[in-house]
Protein backbone atom coordinates (compact mmCIF):
# COMPACT_ATOMS: atom_id res chain seq x y z
CA UNK A 1 0.00 0.00 0.00
CA UNK A 2 1.06 3.58 -0.64
CA UNK A 3 1.27 4.48 3.03
CA UNK A 4 3.86 1.81 3.62
CA UNK A 5 5.98 3.12 0.81
CA UNK A 6 5.68 6.66 2.13
CA UNK A 7 6.55 5.53 5.61
CA UNK A 8 9.63 3.67 4.47
CA UNK A 9 10.77 6.68 2.45
CA UNK A 10 10.32 8.87 5.51
CA UNK A 11 12.20 6.35 7.65
CA UNK A 12 15.10 6.19 5.25
CA UNK A 13 15.23 9.98 5.07
CA UNK A 14 15.18 10.26 8.86
CA UNK A 15 17.85 7.62 9.24
CA UNK A 16 20.01 9.28 6.60
CA UNK A 17 19.78 12.66 8.28
CA UNK A 18 20.49 11.13 11.69
CA UNK A 19 23.57 9.28 10.57
CA UNK A 20 25.02 11.68 8.04
CA UNK A 21 26.63 13.76 10.77
CA UNK A 22 27.99 10.84 12.69
CA UNK A 23 29.52 9.13 9.70
CA UNK A 24 32.99 10.53 10.30
CA UNK A 25 34.66 8.63 13.09
CA UNK A 26 37.14 11.39 13.92
CA UNK A 27 34.45 13.82 15.08
CA UNK A 28 34.07 14.71 18.73
CA UNK A 29 30.85 13.12 19.90
CA UNK A 30 28.50 14.51 22.49
CA UNK A 31 24.84 14.31 23.40
CA UNK A 32 22.41 15.99 25.75
CA UNK A 33 20.58 19.20 26.52
CA UNK A 34 18.56 21.01 23.86
CA UNK A 35 18.83 24.35 25.67
CA UNK A 36 22.44 25.07 24.53
CA UNK A 37 22.11 23.30 21.17
CA UNK A 38 21.99 26.52 19.07
CA UNK A 39 25.26 27.80 20.50
CA UNK A 40 27.02 24.40 20.40
CA UNK A 41 26.05 24.08 16.75
CA UNK A 42 27.39 27.54 15.99
CA UNK A 43 30.65 26.91 17.85
CA UNK A 44 31.06 23.55 16.12
CA UNK A 45 30.65 25.18 12.72
CA UNK A 46 33.27 27.86 13.41
CA UNK A 47 35.62 25.32 15.03
CA UNK A 48 35.37 23.05 12.00
CA UNK A 49 36.29 25.92 9.69
CA UNK A 50 39.29 26.79 11.82
CA UNK A 51 40.68 23.38 12.74
CA UNK A 52 38.93 20.99 10.36
CA UNK A 53 37.75 18.98 13.39
CA UNK A 54 34.04 18.37 13.55
CA UNK A 55 31.67 18.02 16.47
CA UNK A 56 28.70 15.68 16.39
CA UNK A 57 26.26 16.88 19.03
CA UNK A 58 22.89 15.18 19.39
CA UNK A 59 20.44 17.39 21.22
CA UNK A 60 18.40 14.61 22.77
CA UNK A 61 17.72 16.29 26.11
CA UNK A 62 19.55 16.48 29.43
CA UNK A 63 18.31 13.12 30.71
CA UNK A 64 19.42 11.51 27.47
CA UNK A 65 22.83 13.18 27.78
CA UNK A 66 23.35 11.73 31.25
CA UNK A 67 22.24 8.28 30.05
CA UNK A 68 24.55 8.38 27.04
CA UNK A 69 27.67 9.42 28.95
CA UNK A 70 26.98 6.74 31.57
CA UNK A 71 26.63 4.21 28.76
CA UNK A 72 29.96 5.55 27.40
CA UNK A 73 28.59 5.93 23.89
CA UNK A 74 29.71 9.58 23.68
CA UNK A 75 32.81 11.50 24.72
CA UNK A 76 30.85 14.11 26.62
CA UNK A 77 27.33 14.49 27.93
CA UNK A 78 25.52 17.80 28.34
CA UNK A 79 22.87 18.61 30.94
CA UNK A 80 21.06 21.65 32.29
CA UNK A 81 20.29 19.88 35.54
CA UNK A 82 23.67 19.46 37.24
CA UNK A 83 24.52 16.17 38.94
CA UNK A 84 25.31 16.32 42.66
CA UNK A 85 28.93 15.83 43.75
CA UNK A 86 28.24 12.36 45.22
CA UNK A 87 26.72 11.11 41.98
CA UNK A 88 29.69 12.48 40.03
CA UNK A 89 32.17 10.65 42.26
CA UNK A 90 30.16 7.47 42.11
CA UNK A 91 30.33 7.31 38.33
CA UNK A 92 33.78 8.86 37.98
CA UNK A 93 32.56 11.91 36.12
CA UNK A 94 33.77 15.50 36.00
CA UNK A 95 31.22 18.29 35.62
CA UNK A 96 31.73 21.90 34.58
CA UNK A 97 29.48 24.74 33.35
CA UNK A 98 29.79 25.77 29.72
CA UNK A 99 27.44 28.68 29.11
CA UNK A 100 24.44 30.39 30.74
CA UNK A 101 21.06 31.64 29.59
CA UNK A 102 17.69 32.91 30.75
CA UNK A 103 14.29 31.23 30.94
CA UNK A 104 11.35 33.59 30.38
CA UNK A 105 7.59 33.29 30.88
CA UNK A 106 5.76 33.91 27.59
CA UNK A 107 2.09 34.74 27.19
CA UNK A 108 -0.54 35.12 24.47
CA UNK A 109 -3.09 37.84 25.20
CA UNK A 110 -4.76 40.02 22.58
CA UNK A 111 -3.42 43.57 22.68
CA UNK A 112 -0.73 42.89 25.28
CA UNK A 113 2.83 43.53 24.16
CA UNK A 114 6.16 42.16 25.42
CA UNK A 115 7.17 43.49 28.83
CA UNK A 116 3.75 44.99 29.64
CA UNK A 117 2.71 42.31 32.11
CA UNK A 118 4.67 41.82 35.34
CA UNK A 119 4.51 38.57 37.33
CA UNK A 120 6.11 37.66 40.64
CA UNK A 121 7.22 34.20 41.71
CA UNK A 122 4.32 33.48 44.07
CA UNK A 123 1.74 34.37 41.41
CA UNK A 124 3.55 32.34 38.75
CA UNK A 125 3.54 29.33 41.09
CA UNK A 126 -0.20 29.76 41.73
CA UNK A 127 -0.88 29.93 37.98
CA UNK A 128 1.09 26.74 37.38
CA UNK A 129 -0.65 25.09 40.36
CA UNK A 130 -3.97 25.89 38.71
CA UNK A 131 -5.11 28.09 41.60
CA UNK A 132 -5.24 31.25 39.48
CA UNK A 133 -7.46 30.39 36.55
CA UNK A 134 -8.30 33.67 34.78
CA UNK A 135 -6.22 36.60 33.59
CA UNK A 136 -8.18 39.21 35.57
CA UNK A 137 -7.53 37.44 38.89
CA UNK A 138 -7.03 39.88 41.79
CA UNK A 139 -3.34 38.91 42.20
CA UNK A 140 -2.56 39.66 38.57
CA UNK A 141 -4.56 42.88 38.56
CA UNK A 142 -2.68 44.06 41.64
CA UNK A 143 0.68 43.46 39.93
CA UNK A 144 -0.49 45.13 36.71
CA UNK A 145 -2.66 48.12 37.63
CA UNK A 146 -2.10 49.81 34.28
CA UNK A 147 -2.84 46.85 31.98
CA UNK A 148 -6.40 45.99 31.03
CA UNK A 149 -6.45 42.24 31.67
CA UNK A 150 -9.25 40.22 30.02
CA UNK A 151 -11.38 37.59 31.76
CA UNK A 152 -9.91 34.92 29.45
CA UNK A 153 -9.12 31.55 31.04
CA UNK A 154 -5.42 30.92 31.56
CA UNK A 155 -4.05 28.02 29.52
CA UNK A 156 -0.88 26.81 31.23
CA UNK A 157 1.66 25.31 28.81
CA UNK A 158 4.50 23.16 30.12
CA UNK A 159 7.02 20.71 28.71
CA UNK A 160 5.71 17.21 28.07
CA UNK A 161 9.19 15.75 27.77
CA UNK A 162 11.75 15.76 30.56
CA UNK A 163 13.94 18.82 30.24
CA UNK A 164 16.63 20.88 31.90
CA UNK A 165 14.52 23.96 31.24
CA UNK A 166 11.73 22.41 33.30
CA UNK A 167 14.26 21.48 36.00
CA UNK A 168 15.37 25.10 36.40
CA UNK A 169 11.82 26.43 36.15
CA UNK A 170 10.43 24.05 38.79
CA UNK A 171 13.50 24.71 40.94
CA UNK A 172 12.62 28.40 40.81
CA UNK A 173 8.96 27.77 41.66
CA UNK A 174 10.03 25.56 44.59
CA UNK A 175 12.21 28.37 45.91
CA UNK A 176 9.44 30.98 45.76
CA UNK A 177 6.46 28.85 46.78
CA UNK A 178 6.31 26.41 49.68
CA UNK A 179 3.09 25.05 48.20
CA UNK A 180 4.80 24.19 44.91
CA UNK A 181 7.68 22.58 46.76
CA UNK A 182 5.46 20.28 48.80
CA UNK A 183 2.86 19.49 46.12
CA UNK A 184 4.98 19.22 42.99
CA UNK A 185 8.70 19.61 43.67
CA UNK A 186 11.59 20.08 41.26
CA UNK A 187 12.74 17.72 38.52
CA UNK A 188 13.38 17.49 34.79
CA UNK A 189 9.79 16.23 34.58
CA UNK A 190 7.17 16.55 37.28
CA UNK A 191 3.50 15.76 37.78
CA UNK A 192 2.05 19.00 36.43
CA UNK A 193 -1.11 19.96 38.34
CA UNK A 194 -2.70 21.63 35.31
CA UNK A 195 -2.23 22.64 31.72
CA UNK A 196 -1.15 21.47 28.29
CA UNK A 197 2.08 19.64 27.59
CA UNK A 198 4.20 20.37 24.53
CA UNK A 199 7.39 18.73 23.35
CA UNK A 200 10.58 20.75 23.47
CA UNK A 201 11.20 24.48 23.76
CA UNK A 202 9.91 24.84 20.21
CA UNK A 203 6.73 22.92 21.05
CA UNK A 204 5.97 25.19 24.01
CA UNK A 205 6.68 28.25 21.87
CA UNK A 206 4.32 27.02 19.14
CA UNK A 207 1.54 26.04 21.56
CA UNK A 208 1.68 29.40 23.36
CA UNK A 209 1.63 31.21 20.02
CA UNK A 210 -1.45 29.22 18.89
CA UNK A 211 -3.48 29.27 22.11
CA UNK A 212 -5.32 32.37 23.29
CA UNK A 213 -4.79 33.07 26.99
CA UNK A 214 -1.73 30.80 27.20
CA UNK A 215 1.28 31.13 29.47
CA UNK A 216 4.42 29.02 29.12
CA UNK A 217 8.17 29.17 29.72
CA UNK A 218 10.97 28.92 27.18
CA UNK A 219 14.65 29.58 26.83
CA UNK A 220 15.09 33.28 25.94
CA UNK A 221 16.35 32.68 22.39
CA UNK A 222 13.15 30.77 21.53
CA UNK A 223 10.98 33.64 22.79
CA UNK A 224 12.97 36.12 20.76
CA UNK A 225 13.08 34.11 17.54
CA UNK A 226 9.36 33.34 17.64
CA UNK A 227 8.38 36.92 18.54
CA UNK A 228 6.55 35.76 21.63
CA UNK A 229 5.25 38.15 24.25
CA UNK A 230 7.46 37.78 27.31
CA UNK A 231 6.59 39.08 30.75
CA UNK A 232 8.77 41.00 33.17
CA UNK A 233 9.39 39.50 36.59
CA UNK A 234 9.79 40.62 40.17
CA UNK A 235 13.12 39.34 41.49
CA UNK A 236 14.38 38.39 44.95
CA UNK A 237 15.12 42.04 45.82
CA UNK A 238 11.56 43.00 44.94
CA UNK A 239 12.61 44.87 41.80
CA UNK A 240 10.89 44.46 38.44
CA UNK A 241 13.35 43.31 35.76
CA UNK A 242 13.09 42.66 32.04
CA UNK A 243 14.71 39.59 30.44
CA UNK A 244 17.85 40.81 28.69
CA UNK A 245 21.58 40.14 28.63
CA UNK A 246 22.26 42.61 31.45
CA UNK A 247 19.79 41.03 33.86
CA UNK A 248 20.96 37.46 33.04
CA UNK A 249 24.55 38.59 33.58
CA UNK A 250 23.65 40.23 36.89
CA UNK A 251 22.21 36.93 38.12
CA UNK A 252 25.27 35.04 36.96
CA UNK A 253 27.69 37.51 38.54
CA UNK A 254 26.49 36.71 42.04
CA UNK A 255 26.93 32.96 41.72
CA UNK A 256 29.54 31.18 43.81
CA UNK A 257 31.16 28.61 41.53
CA UNK A 258 33.75 27.32 44.01
CA UNK A 259 31.64 24.33 45.04
CA UNK A 260 32.36 20.66 44.23
CA UNK A 261 31.20 19.73 40.75
CA UNK A 262 30.25 23.39 40.11
CA UNK A 263 26.80 22.43 41.43
CA UNK A 264 25.19 25.81 41.15
CA UNK A 265 21.65 26.64 40.21
CA UNK A 266 21.20 30.25 39.20
CA UNK A 267 17.52 30.76 39.95
CA UNK A 268 16.35 33.40 42.44
CA UNK A 269 19.78 35.03 42.81
CA UNK A 270 20.07 38.21 44.90
CA UNK A 271 20.82 41.59 43.29
CA UNK A 272 18.60 44.46 42.16
CA UNK A 273 19.25 43.70 38.46
CA UNK A 274 19.13 39.88 38.58
CA UNK A 275 16.72 37.98 36.31
CA UNK A 276 15.15 35.39 38.62
CA UNK A 277 15.12 32.35 36.28
CA UNK A 278 18.67 32.17 34.97
CA UNK A 279 20.27 28.81 34.23
CA UNK A 280 23.66 27.33 33.43
CA UNK A 281 24.25 24.32 31.24
CA UNK A 282 26.86 21.71 32.10
CA UNK A 283 29.25 19.26 30.44
CA UNK A 284 29.92 15.79 31.84
CA UNK A 285 33.15 13.89 31.06
CA UNK A 286 34.99 10.91 32.49
CA UNK A 287 37.92 11.39 34.84
CA UNK A 288 39.56 8.36 33.29
CA UNK A 289 38.22 8.26 29.74
CA UNK A 290 38.38 4.99 27.84
CA UNK A 291 39.41 6.86 24.71
CA UNK A 292 42.02 9.33 25.86
CA UNK A 293 42.57 10.86 22.41
CA UNK A 294 38.85 11.62 21.92
CA UNK A 295 38.64 13.14 25.38
CA UNK A 296 41.63 15.42 24.65
CA UNK A 297 40.02 16.52 21.40
CA UNK A 298 36.80 17.41 23.23
CA UNK A 299 38.73 19.44 25.82
CA UNK A 300 40.52 21.26 23.02
CA UNK A 301 37.14 22.21 21.59
CA UNK A 302 35.83 23.46 24.96
CA UNK A 303 39.07 25.41 25.49
CA UNK A 304 38.63 27.01 22.07
CA UNK A 305 34.98 27.83 22.88
CA UNK A 306 35.94 29.51 26.17
CA UNK A 307 38.68 31.50 24.41
CA UNK A 308 37.02 32.47 21.16
CA UNK A 309 33.34 31.69 21.54
CA UNK A 310 32.12 34.52 23.77
CA UNK A 311 31.04 36.80 20.97
CA UNK A 312 29.09 34.07 19.21
CA UNK A 313 27.37 33.21 22.50
CA UNK A 314 26.32 36.82 23.08
CA UNK A 315 24.94 37.02 19.56
CA UNK A 316 22.57 34.18 20.41
CA UNK A 317 21.69 35.70 23.81
CA UNK A 318 23.68 33.20 25.84
CA UNK A 319 25.96 34.46 28.59
CA UNK A 320 29.59 33.35 28.40
CA UNK A 321 31.21 32.11 31.61
CA UNK A 322 33.19 34.86 33.42
CA UNK A 323 36.98 34.70 33.00
CA UNK A 324 37.69 33.70 36.58
CA UNK A 325 35.26 30.76 36.35
CA UNK A 326 36.94 29.65 33.14
CA UNK A 327 40.30 29.72 34.96
CA UNK A 328 38.78 27.51 37.68
CA UNK A 329 37.42 25.09 35.09
CA UNK A 330 40.79 24.80 33.37
CA UNK A 331 42.36 23.95 36.71
CA UNK A 332 39.77 21.21 37.16
CA UNK A 333 40.63 19.79 33.73
CA UNK A 334 44.33 19.71 34.55
CA UNK A 335 43.77 18.16 37.98
CA UNK A 336 40.97 15.69 37.37
CA UNK A 337 40.88 14.46 33.79
CA UNK A 338 43.66 11.98 33.37
Amino acid sequence: MDIKKLMSVALVAAAASAFSVSAKAADISGAGATFPYPIYAKWADAYKKETNNGLNYQSIGSGGGIKQIKAKTVTFGATDAPLKAEELNESGLVQFPMVMGGIVPVINLDGVKAGEVVIDGATLAKIFLGEIKVWNDAALVKLNPKVKLPSTAIAVVHRSDGSGTSFNFTNYLSKVSADWKSKVGENASVEWPTGLGAKGNEGVAATVAQTKGAIGYVEYAYAKQNNLTNTDMVNKDGKTVAPKMASFQAAAANADWSVPGYYQILTEQPGAESWPITAATFILMYKQPADKAASDEALKFFDWAFTKGDKMASELDYIPMPAKVVALIKKTWAADIK
Binding site: I60, G61, S62, G63, G64, I66, K67, S160, D161, G162, S163, A188, S189, G195, L196, G197, K199
Partner: peptide, 18 residues
Protein backbone atom coordinates in the same frame (compact mmCIF):
# COMPACT_ATOMS: atom_id res chain seq x y z
CA UNK B 1 -9.78 19.14 28.31
CA UNK B 2 -6.23 18.02 27.56
CA UNK B 3 -5.36 14.35 28.04
CA UNK B 4 -2.76 11.89 26.83
CA UNK B 5 -2.49 8.54 25.08
CA UNK B 6 -0.14 5.62 25.56
CA UNK B 7 1.82 6.21 22.39
CA UNK B 8 2.02 9.98 22.95
CA UNK B 9 3.40 9.42 26.45
CA UNK B 10 6.07 7.05 25.18
CA UNK B 11 7.06 9.38 22.34
CA UNK B 12 7.28 12.37 24.68
CA UNK B 13 9.11 10.89 27.58
CA UNK B 14 11.23 7.93 26.54
CA UNK B 15 14.42 9.80 25.65
CA UNK B 16 14.39 11.71 28.91
CA UNK B 17 13.23 8.97 31.25
CA UNK B 18 15.88 8.81 33.96
Amino acid sequence: APGTTISATIANEFTEAV
